[in-house]
């Protein structure tokens, strides 16, 4: 049953992306991408990744959409008709896709408890995490403690983006409309 739900949701996501790729109205594209993220969040719930789901809902469906809409508002644009036949991109994506098919063919089946990821490293987090860190949410324990340095890196990434955007979008102190690029 769980597998079925996941697969149906995944199919919906694929549909959303196909429609998105064919849409040229950018507003619709952004709405579709929000929908896609929302579906992704739902899939994550079904996959027991509640923290991921919550974040994806807030970030993918929320912030990303707001940012995209804001940028669209500043750019006021429709997508132009593609000028080239997309043979090269198709070839590139197809070969990458085939490579992935090749690579995932031998991977453990869905929900295989014997998969390596369930046998190594993770068991310790589940068994000892709550007692070692005092945090029952193992995701938080791993995020903040075992792999706390990753999270420092992640915070730094956010900081980098924030400070970078300030550097790019800050206007000059004097309220003139000039820009440093013509």
């Amino acid at each position: 049953m769980e597998t079925l739900i996941v697969n149906v949701l995944l199919t919906l996501m694929m549909l959303a992306v196909v429609v998105l790729a064919r849409t040229r109205n950018l507003f619709s594209v952004i709405v579709l991408s929000g929908l896609y993220s929302f579906l992704m969040a739902t899939v994550m719930v079904a996959l027991d990744a509640v923290d991921v789901a919550m974040t994806e809902a807030a970030v993918g469906a929320g912030i990303s959409t707001v940012l995209l809409l804001g940028a669209l508002h500043l750019c006021r644009s429709e997508e132009a008709k593609p000028a080239h036949k997309p043979w090269l991109p198709l070839a590139v994506t197809a070969s990458a896709g085939l490579l992935l098919v090749y690579g995932t063919w031998d991977l453990p089946a869905f929900s295989d408890p014997e998969a390596p990821i369930h046998k190594h490293v993770a068991p310790r987090y589940l068994e000892a995490g709550p007692s070692e860190t005092g945090v029952p949410n193992v995701v938080t324990a791993v995020l903040a403690s075992y792999r706390g340095f990753d999270t420092l890196g992640e915070t730094t990434v956010v900081f980098t983006a924030g400070a970078g955007i300030v550097a790019l979008l800050r206007r000059r102190r004097r309220k003139t409309a000039d820009k440093e690029a013509p």
Binding site: M54, T55, G62, N137
Partner: peptide, 14 residues
Amino acid sequence: GDFGPGGGFQAGVI
């Protein structure tokens, strides 16, 4: 966030 889903990142966003 220690006990259920959530944490600094999500709280910051909210």
